[in-house]
């Protein structure tokens, strides 16, 4: 019992919260970027532009089928060969964006497919160009249908940032490791704190999504 009280000293809690903040920061940035990139990739794959869609589709499949850890390594250790030396946090955001946008691309593509064909035809008949129809008519409907799938992907993203501890991203998981690494009595309190903090963030997001989903429906 005493180890619990000691483990949750203000100093340790503050350190954990600093880690949580990095987790949230990295997640929010990656969610926004991968949503934009993923939509773009999903549309390209759906639209069937000659050659381009096939090549983009193949690259998406390659990345989707690799472990995220490898993508993290390639971004952090591989990109500098290109003359681009990201620090740990930008490198993680980049790796998460690359990986998650390919996952989102598939969700978004099937979301667009689920919108009835008549919608596109109707919009085109009313004089909109293909891209106008896509962005103004099709996508908004597709997104609305995809909310649950999108959100569960975002939750995966938040959880997956913990893998970046392997390149020493100072996130929630890493900060907990540092604390219990220095005192083994803190290990159970730290795991409990990890579980609670991740749960609050991830579950909170899914509750929020359900609420929005219901409002829109």
């Amino acid at each position: 019992m005493k180890s619990f009280i000691d483990a949750y000293s203000w100093i340790n809690l503050r350190y954990l919260l600093e880690g949580l903040w990095i987790t949230v920061e990295v997640s929010v940035a990656s969610v926004i970027l991968s949503f934009i990139l993923g939509s773009f990739l999903g549309i390209i794959r759906y639209t069937k532009i000659k050659y381009v869609s096939a090549i983009v589709g193949f690259i998406i499949d390659l990345i989707r089928n690799l472990p995220l850890l490898l993508i993290i390594f390639f971004t952090y250790f591989g990109l500098p060969n290109f003359g681009f030396k990201p620090e740990i946090i930008p490198a993680t955001i980049l790796a998460m964006t690359i990986f998650e946008s390919t996952m989102l691309a598939e969700i978004i593509r099937s979301g667009i497919q689920a919108v009835p064909n008549g919608q596109m035809e109707g919009a085109r008949a009313n004089g909109l160009t293909y891209w106008q129809a896509m962005f103004q008519i099709i996508l908004p409907q597709a997104y609305k249908k995809m909310i649950p799938a999108l959100v569960s992907q975002f939750i995966s993203l938040i959880k997956d940032t913990s893998l970046a501890t392997i390149i020493v991203l100072p996130d929630l998981t890493y900060h907990a490791q540092i604390i219990y690494g220095q005192n083994a009595n803190y290990i159970i309190p730290m795991f409990l704190a990890l579980a609670v903090m991740y749960f609050i963030v991830c579950y909170g997001l899914s509750v929020l999504a359900n609420y929005i989903d219901r409002r829109l429906a």
Binding site: F74, G78, L79, P80, N81, F82, G83, K85
Partner: peptide
């Protein structure tokens, strides 16, 4: 090129 490590060292 990057992935195969052919890139020039910085």
């Amino acid at each position: 090129l990057t992935l195969s490590g052919c890139g020039k060292s910085l």
